[in-house]
Design a binder for these strands. Sequence first.
DNA 1: CTAATAGTGTCTCTCAGACATTATGTC
DNA 2: GACATAATGTCTGAGAGACACTATTAG
Lengths: 247, 247
Amino acid sequence: MSTAPEGYDPHAFVPFAVTVDLAVFTVREGRLHVLLVERGEAPYEGHWALPGGFVLPRESAEEAARRELAEETGLTRRSSRAFHLEQLRTYSDPDRDPRMRVVSVAYAALVPDLPEPRGGGDAARARWWETGRTGPLAFDHDRILSDAHDRIGARLEYTCLATAFCPAEFTLGDLQQVYETVWGVELDRPNFRRKVLTTPGFVQAAEGPPRRTGGRGKPAALYRAGAATALHPPLLRPEGRREGRTP
Amino acid sequence: MSTAPEGYDPHAFVPFAVTVDLAVFTVREGRLHVLLVERGEAPYEGHWALPGGFVLPRESAEEAARRELAEETGLTRRSSRAFHLEQLRTYSDPDRDPRMRVVSVAYAALVPDLPEPRGGGDAARARWWETGRTGPLAFDHDRILSDAHDRIGARLEYTCLATAFCPAEFTLGDLQQVYETVWGVELDRPNFRRKVLTTPGFVQAAEGPPRRTGGRGKPAALYRAGAATALHPPLLRPEGRREGRTP
DNA sequence: CTAATAGTGTCTCTCAGACATTATGTC
DNA sequence: GACATAATGTCTGAGAGACACTATTAG
C-alpha cells in the first residue's frame, strides 16, 4: 500500500512515456472514414494504426493532439484549428505497448471531407479507411477506434457537433447524411428537417439565397453552422443498440 | 515538427510522472460533498486537494484509482469495488505542478453516505467538504472538481447512475434528493416517481414489503437498483445552465 | 385534530414518428 | 413527359410539466 497518498514522494516517481492518439473521422460518400497510418517498423510492422506521437516536454496533450492533427491532415496548424477536437479518454494498460510503459491520451477529431492526406513529413503512408473495413489495428487501437465511434455517436444526440463534418456551407441533406452515416440508420427527412430548423442556433440560412444541386433533383437551400453547441431537447437515435448496454 | 509521427523514436522519449486524482462524491443531508485531503508539505502546504497518487509500474490508471479509492475511504478494496468509478479526463498542462512534469488522469467516484474517513495510512487529514464551500484547492483541482461536478450532473440525465449514491435499499425520496442535490434544483415528486417507475430496470421493489420512516410522515416503500444502466428517454434537467454554453 | 411525508390521478402542451402532398430541378 | 430530390403540411401517440387529491404515519 502506498504510504504517500497526498504528497508526491520523489522516490515513488516512475517514468512513463506519454503520447496522444487521434481518431480523425470524416464522412465521404455516405460512409464513415477514419485516418490511419501504416507502421514501418516493429512492433506491428505493416499494420495500420491511429496517427499519434509523443507529448513534447513543454506542451499539453491538447497541444500535441492539435499539432499531430495539422501534420497528418497536411494542413497548416492555423486552418486545422477550426476542426473539432475533443479528448476521449486515456489508455494506460501496462502492456499496451510491448516495448515500454506508454500512457496514451486519445482524442477524436471531426473534419469535413478533405483531400487525400499526405504522410506526416517522412515516408509514412496515410490514408482514409472506411470504419468497419479496417483490418486489426496495431496496439489497442481497435478498442480506441471503437470507443471513439461510440462517443461521437452519442455526442450527435446532445450537441450540434454534426456540422463539424460539413464544409462551411451545406444542405440539410448533407447534415442528415452525417447522422445516418455515424449512427448507421435511416432518418425521416421531413422530421429531421423540422428538428434542425426549430432548434435555435443549430443552423442558419446562408445569406445570399444561392442553391446547389445534389445531382438532378431540386436544388437545396444552403446553411451554415449556428452559434449553439448544445441541443435541447436532444435528437435521439430511433431505437436499437446504444452506448450503455441494458442486459 | 516531429519527424516520427508513426513510430516511437527512442530519442523522443521524455519522462513524465503519471498520477490519478479522484473526485469522490457523496450526498449527505441533501448536500453534495466531496472527499478532500489536507496537504502536509509544499507546494500548497495547508491547502486541501483531491486524493490521488502515482500510478505504479505494473498497474493501469484504473487500478490505481481503485486502489486509492479503497485507501481513502478506509474500506477494503473488495467492498469498494462496488462503488461506481469512471474516468473523467486527463489534465496535462506543463505547469500544473511546479516541481515536475505530471500528467494526471482524473476519475469521479460516487459513493453512498459513508462513515467519516480516516486518512490513508499516515497522518494525512481527510474529510468530506460540501461542494461550493471548499476554499481554493491545490494545483488545478478546482478545475477538476468543477469538471467532475458537471460530468456527473450530465450523467444523471442519461444513465441510472443516481442509485450509486444510495445504499442498497432506498426510497424514491432518497433517489429524488440525489437529483435535486447534484443539479441544485427542485423536482416535482409525482412526475419524478412516474418517470423512475415507468423506466424498465431503473429500480425494483425490495422483496419483502418492509417500509421505513423518514421522520413523521407516511413510511415509504423501499427499492433496489435495477439492472438497467442507460435511461431512455433521458431524465432531463428542467431548464437553466447546462454543460455546453450557448453564447 | 394538525402536520408531514408518501402515493395516485388527470389535464394539457410539446414534440417526435409516420406519411401524404406539393415544389422545382435534370433527363 | 418521367424521375429525382427538396420542402411543406397534417395526424397521432408518447411523455413531461403542473397540480389536485388521497393515504398513512407522528404528535
